[in-house]
């Protein structure tokens, strides 16, 4: 479904060039839970950003259902991000002035048309799935860190995408909260949703179907 071939990415700065990815290849199948692990600076977050189309690679191909998305127009990329890919970041990035339910509804906002009751129900179902059925009207500031991250996951789930990318989703959470978030993520594959997660925690990575190890910008195992 999603295949990266010979991906290269180099960051340029005043201090010189830093190769972040060196001919990286990776395949993700529908419903698969893939964990990318490695030390800090190994290139795992850069790979996730390239896979989720948030970052364009310098070279290589990123095939989604056989089409190279690196050649997509900005409009097609937007459509891909809206319909097929969703991302959960290390930090939840909830809009502080919208309620939990409204944050989950964000991907559905288009122009001045109001969201339909069906979409609202979908958002509520996603909140219920992450255990926040009764907190839809609360502002993010009134939720705990774990609950905020759950809302972010609900927002990603609401889009009904094919692939969910998660970048250190437990990075800002305590162990117990992190465990509950991991439990949630590892149970998503049953719907055919592929999950690609970056983590530095081998314990959490062990819950994945497949673990990809990275070091110095390359896949090493």
């Amino acid at each position: 479904m999603l295949e990266a071939r010979n991906i290269r990415k180099t960051f340029h700065s005043e201090g010189g060039e830093t190769p972040a990815l060196r001919d990286v290849g990776l395949t993700v199948r529908p419903g698969e839970f893939v964990a990318i692990v490695g030390r800090s600076g190994s290139g795992k977050t850069t790979l996730l950003n390239v896979l989720s189309t948030l970052l364009a690679p310098d070279a290589g191909e990123l095939l989604y259902h056989g089409e190279d998305v690196t050649a997509f127009s900005p409009a097609r990329l937007n459509s891909l991000r809206r319909k097929d890919f969703s991302v959960v970041f290390q930090f939840h990035y909830l809009l502080p002035y919208l309620s939990a339910r409204e944050n989950v509804l964000l991907p559905y906002l288009r122009g001045l048309g109001r969201v339909t009751p069906a979409v609202r129900e979908r958002a509520d179902a996603c909140l219920a799935r992450v255990g926040l059925a009764d907190k839809g009207n609360m502002l993010p500031g009134h939720l705990s860190g774990g609950e905020q991250q759950r809302v972010a996951i609900a927002r990603a789930l609401a889009k009904e995408t094919a692939v969910l990318f998660a970048d250190e989703p437990t990075g800002n959470l305590d162990r117990a909260t992190g465990e509950s978030v991991m439990e949630l993520l590892s149970g998503l594959g049953g719907d055919g949703l592929a999950v690609v997660m970056v983590t530095h925690d081998d314990g959490f990575a062990a819950r994945a179907d497949r673990v990809v190890r990275m070091a110095d910008g390359a896949v090493v195992g």
Binding site: N78, S79, R81, R82, S86, P107
Partner: peptide, 10 residues
Amino acid sequence: GLLRSLGFSR
């Protein structure tokens, strides 16, 4: 950035 990652167009 978040809105763009959610698929909001320019």
